[in-house]
């Protein structure tokens, strides 16, 4: 479905994508992960023909991107992170406008609008102006617009940013359902649990290079289990940051999770003693990178993400 060979993109002297190779099969949901500035948005923008690249070859649907951009775009869609819609148009007017500019008319228009509405549960909001919808409803409309051309390939750039858990679950279910229709999805997000929940494959980008790509399950099992993950009962952000400054091996995953890279018994003992001294209640201690978040932090050089 997507074949990228030796892709290079630089902005003046800054390399945004550094000799990327990536293949994505049909019907796959690929999670594109990476810290800020890793090159995720640049890659997705290039795949949508929105920005140029300097070197490499890209084929989508077996068609070369440089020559067949229009044909490729007709069969794909891009849902940007920002709410790319018109606040002063109603839900239905937004859908009709974006369908209209893609020359979708007549029966196809009615069918595709109906499909986008029902999948995104927007029927009851048809006559509401987009500007007055809740954050979750706007996100759903943003996704619905991306479905109007019944694409075979869908790109989502952080489609759940800034919404409540219930709306997020609905959106993830919607995106997951595309797999049943044989569609391919490229999904970028900072939310690791989302990627774990819906993606079959993961590609981790760091400083313009793909440092891991493969099936999510396999990737988690293949990684060396030489790390210790300590889960806490409550949040102790300040104390954990102090601990991380004191022990170089300690990485703070979130306010209630620590990871220790390759500790020996003495260090592990000292860290646990420090936790006890701070009266921090430990819930669980386990070995290995048993979730994507830990794997991500282990792999990326920056060791931080916007979770």
């Amino acid at each position: 479905m997507i074949s990228i060979k030796n892709l290079v993109k630089h902005y003046n002297n800054h390399i945004a994508l550094d000799h990327i190779d990536l293949n994505v099969g049909k019907g796959v949901i690929l999670g594109l992960l990476g810290p800020n500035g890793a090159g995720k948005t640049t890659l997705v923008s290039i795949l949508n023909g929105l920005i140029d690249f300097q070197e490499g070859e890209i084929e989508i649907f077996g068609l070369p991107l440089s020559q067949e951009l229009k044909a490729i775009r007709k069969r794909s869609s891009f849902t940007p992170q920002s709410l790319a819609l018109y606040d002063n148009l109603t839900v239905l007017e937004n859908l009709r406008f974006f369908a209209g500019i893609q020359k979708i008319r007549g029966k196809e228009l009615r069918h595709n609008v109906e499909y986008a509405l029902s999948v995104n549960r927007l029927h009851s909001l048809l006559d509401h102006k987009a500007g007055i919808l809740s954050g979750g409803q706007k996100r759903r409309l943003n996704i619905a617009i991306g479905m109007l051309n019944n694409p075979e390939l869908l790109y989502f750039d952080e489609p759940t940013a800034g919404i409540d858990p219930e709306s997020r679950t609905n959106i993830l279910e919607t995106i997951r359902s595309f797999k049943n229709d044989g569609k391919t999805v490229i999904y970028t997000s900072h939310y690791m649990p989302e990627i774990e929940k819906i993606c079959d494959e993961v590609a981790i980008l760091d400083r313009g290079r793909i440092i891991r790509h493969g099936l999510l399950e396999a990737m988690l099992h293949e990684e060396k289990a030489d790390s210790v993950v300590i889960e806490l009962r409550h949040s102790y952000e300040a104390q954990l940051q102090t601990l991380a400054r004191k022990y170089a091996l300690v990485k703070v995953i979130d306010a209630a999770t620590l990871m220790i890279d390759g500790p020996d018994a003495t260090q592990l003992g000292a860290i646990l003693a420090a936790l006890e001294a701070e009266q921090i209640d430990v819930k669980q201690i386990r070995y290995g990178t048993t979730n994507l978040e830990a794997l991500f932090i282990q792999l990326t050089t920056q060791g931080n993400c916007d979770v």
């Binding site: 949508n48 929105l50 775009r73 869609s77 606040d87 974006f98 500019i101 893609q102 051309n149």
Partner: peptide, 17 residues
Amino acid sequence: ISEHKQNTLMRMSAMNI
């Protein structure tokens, strides 16, 4: 400018406009 800021222009561009 709203279209530009909200990436509606970019979306239209991705729709072959």
